[in-house]
Design a protein around this nucleic acid. Structure first.
Length: 448
DNA sequence: GCTCAAGGCCAT
DNA sequence: ATGGCCTTGAGC
């Protein structure tokens, strides 16, 4: 049953690493950098310099071949949420000199880590050890960006197959866009039976023709994101509709609003020709794993831009706080969400950044079990590049801005997973999720 | 059973 | 705080 997804995690991860390395290694080729180490420990194996500091590489760490020191430094920085400042001009040398554990400028070292492509999102929130993929029972946060909670496992068999189809087929955009081909019987899905090598075999031809078009298609997809004021109006409309229902509890209102938002999210994604060109199963996975952080960040950004106020008056039952809606109902996270709002403000994030972050949250190549990951990864990296370019060219006054935005992405994912867990345990119990697309999305993710 | 990339431990 | 070494656990 889980066999088809088995390859995938490690092989795809590996492929991702190599792809990343190929992108990140600028002028100097790998071959130029390496030397054969004939020392007893080196055992005649290839020795190469850490991409951050030039020390001896000990393996792939967070997506890049680095030494043990930079690996530990990077992990500590993320896990402990450290923030550094540079006492000089942010161009300090980060090379390791000899074997001495000399103090290096942490700011510049971390900047270098991010610059060579070390992935902040690969540092796990849950501190679980071992292989990052964690298929089998359930997935974890971190690389795969999935549910980091220790929620109980729902037996997959309890859910009818019908629902499996429902998420995108019946209730999603295809309903409104019948011209889209039914892809259940498409030849590319047939190849997933052995779960191996789809990317290089059936997917390759399609991918190579799609690849040059991806930046434009992604741009197109971004351009269909509603502008600030229509976004605000549609949220207010939904809120009015839901709060008008007599006797609606605040959490019920939140669930209903989220359900409608999830519905439009699915429709929006499926209406994009880029998203539509992705493998059908992958589309479903991206939607299932991305909706929570996507909607959360949506509200966070608009709160930061002061497009909406934090308080919304309910006709019958007091006030609804927008931070609580953003927290997916988990009010204990409201304060943390408010802090993220402040961070977005401090980072001076503009609409371009907002669109890039949204795409990064949706087009997450670390979602477990993706069949044809390449176009997703390419688009994801394109958005990261855009984000980085914006930070370096227009926000020189905010050192480390790009890395901080990516940290926010990780935080939003974590809060979104917590919120989703809350919805699944609490709101479902109260019956607020009955017959909602929201519940289907949550359940399907848990089944996968 | 081996490999690899996670996190942890602890002498420095 | 650092980084070398250890443990862990999924994938093969």
């Amino acid at each position: 049953m889980m066999a088809p997804e088995k390859r995938t995690r490690k092989a795809v991860k590996r492929e991702d690493m190599e792809y990343q390395a190929s992108l990140e290694s600028p002028a100097s080729s790998d071959k130029e950098d390496v030397a054969v180490d004939m020392s007893p420990r080196g055992n005649g194996k290839v020795k190469e310099p850490c991409r951050v500091c030039g020390d001896e590489v000990s393996g792939f760490h967070y997506g890049v071949r680095t030494c043990e020191g930079c690996k530990a430094f990077f992990r500590r920085t993320i896990q402990k949420g450290k923030e550094y400042t540079c006492r000089a001009n942010q161009e300090c040398p980060v090379e390791r000199l000899g074997k001495a554990r000399t103090q290096r400028c942490c700011f510049c070292r971390f900047q270098q880590c991010v610059a060579v492509g070390m992935k902040i999102e690969a540092v796990r929130q849950d501190r679980a050890r071992g292989c990052p993929s964690a298929s089998g029972s359930r997935s974890r946060s971190g690389v795969d960006g999935s549910d980091g909670s220790d929620a109980e496992q729902e037996p997959a068999e309890t859910k009818p197959k019908r629902v499996r189809q429902a998420v995108v087929n019946t209730r999603g955009a295809t309903r409104k866009a019948p011209t889209k081909a039914p892809r259940g019987a498409a030849p590319d899905t047939a190849s997933s039976s052995n779960g191996a090598n789809e990317i290089d075999d059936s997917g390759f031809q399609k991918f190579t023709s799609l690849m040059p078009r991806i930046p434009r298609l992604v741009q197109q997809m971004k351009s269909t994101v509603p502008a600030e004021s229509p976004w605000k109006e549609s949220l207010i409309t939904v809120l009015r509709e839901e709060t008008a229902k007599p006797g609606a509890a605040p959490l019920e209102v939140i669930c209903n609003v989220l359900d409608k938002k999830v519905y439009s999210f699915v429709e929006w994604a499926r209406d994009s020709s880029f998203f539509d060109s992705l493998d059908y199963e992958d589309q479903k996975k991206l939607l299932q794993f991305g909706w929570n952080s996507f909607l959360m960040f949506d509200i966070i950004y608009h709160l930061s831009a002061s497009e909406i106020s934090d308080h919304f008056e309910l006709p019958n039952s007091g006030k609804l706080r927008m931070t609580e809606l953003a927290a997916l109902g988990l009010s204990s996270n409201s304060a943390a969400i408010q802090e993220v709002v402040e961070s977005v403000r401090k980072l001076n994030m503009n609409r371009g950044d907002y669109l890039n972050v949204k795409m990064i949250l949706l087009l997450n190549p670390f979602v477990p079990g993706l069949v044809k990951m390449r176009p997703i990864r390419y688009a994801y990296e394109k958005c990261q590049e855009d984000l980085k370019a914006e930070s370096t060219t227009n926000h020189a006054d905010l050192p480390g801005r790009f890395a901080n935005v990516m940290k926010l992405v990780t935080e939003v994912r974590k809060f979104a997973d917590e919120g989703e867990h809350f919805l699944y345990t609490r709101a479902r119990q109260d019956g607020y999720l009955d017959d909602t697309l929201l519940l289907e999305m949550i359940e399907m993710k848990r089944e996968s």
